[in-house]
């Protein structure tokens, strides 16, 4: 065995090494860059460059047409900290994140536990739970605006049929955000559900068999085996969900346009309005960077948390 392996390796290596050494040292050294080049070109053009030019713009008084280009220094950044609209829209984003993340994690887990079965029922359950996720935001919001419609919408129809008072969901300040959260949970919980499902299916059946032999009942198996084994997945899902929720824009823009009275306007919508309605490119860029910093802080904090947990295990 030990004698047989070396000869198998040696005939393969010398020819390539010799070829590279004598014929094409340049190609051997830099050739790999060609594989990376197409992606790199697009990455530089459509990610790196906008990041840099956005930062550059944030020091200028730039309008969308790029006509006025007056150096402001840190003025945009100072304005940002004194602008109540920045803080209220940031607060709305955080409120949305805080309201949407717990149900999006817990319901996903419940769904995965319920749908982890084979056969037709399993297929139907997986289809029903995940189907909304594949719909475009616009389709989702068209349906839900109709569902929340006062007078003859589904929710209010059921409320009045049950003898309750009607609620104008999307036009009432402390109901609009809840309505958006409900829609979001319905729409996007499927993705977290699939992550949990994959993790559940990765738990070896022997673990449960061993537990059953030791006399563990269903509830004990759930709380002592399944949930602890899912803790890493839960961590992953919470991170992904926090970052996804912080990016909220589509549903709110389409359902309430940030109203009533800016009560649901998230930070990205304020960036959008500043840049594309008020044409204040420089200022919009500065707000973008504030938002970017928050995303990075969340991601890095979570990464730290994760690597710490990884060592503990």
């Amino acid at each position: 065995m030990a004698v047989e392996t070396p000869p198998r390796v040696t005939p393969g290596t010398p020819p390539t090494a010799a070829k590279a050494g004598t014929e094409q040292p340049w190609k051997e050294r830099w050739g790999g860059l060609f594989f990376v080049a197409p992606f790199l070109l697009l990455f530089v053009l459509f990610m790196l460059w906008p990041i840099v030019s956005g930062l550059w713009n944030s020091f200028f008084n730039t309008s969308l047409a790029g006509v006025k280009h007056e150096f402001l220094g840190l003025q945009n950044w100072r304005d940002l900290f004194g602008d109540p609209a920045v803080w209220s829209s940031l607060k709305n984003t955080l409120v949305f994140t805080a309201m949407s993340t717990p149900p999006l994690v817990i319901i996903a887990l419940v769904m995965a536990l319920l749908a982890n079965r084979k056969g037709l029922l399993g297929w139907l359950l997986r289809f029903s739970y995940f189907a909304p996720f594949v719909l475009p935001a616009t389709v989702v919001t068209l349906i839900w605006v109709w569902i929340y419609q006062p007078g003859f919408g589904l929710v209010n129809g059921l409320l009045t049929a049950g003898g309750f008072a009607e609620i104008d969901w999307l036009n009432t300040e402390n109901r609009a955000m809840l309505a958006v959260v409900i829609t979001t949970v319905w729409w996007t919980v499927g993705f977290n559900f699939l992550l949990y499902l994959a993790a559940l299916q990765g738990i070896p059946a022997q673990v449960y068999e061993a537990a059953a032999i030791d006399g563990a009942n269903g509830r004990q198996q759930l709380f002592r085996i399944t949930l602890p084994l899912l803790s890493r997945t839960t961590g992953l899902i919470v991170v992904l969900q926090l970052v996804a929720s912080l990016k909220i824009f589509d549903q709110i823009y389409l359902m309430t346009t940030g109203g009533p009275n800016h009560a649901t306007r998230p930070i990205i919508m304020y960036i959008y309005e500043t840049g594309f309605t008020s044409y204040r490119i420089g200022y919009a860029s500065a707000i973008s960077y504030l938002f970017f910093a928050i995303i990075v802080i969340v991601a890095v904090a979570q990464f730290k948390l994760f690597s710490g947990r990884g060592e503990a295990e």
Partner: peptide, 30 residues
Amino acid sequence: KFPGRKVLFGLIIAGILVPPQVLIVPLFQE
């Protein structure tokens, strides 16, 4: 293998953190 491979990969991995939403304004200008 090529010179700078690790640095480039690190840069691209950092790109995962960039939400496309923060790029809309400069990207539209571009």
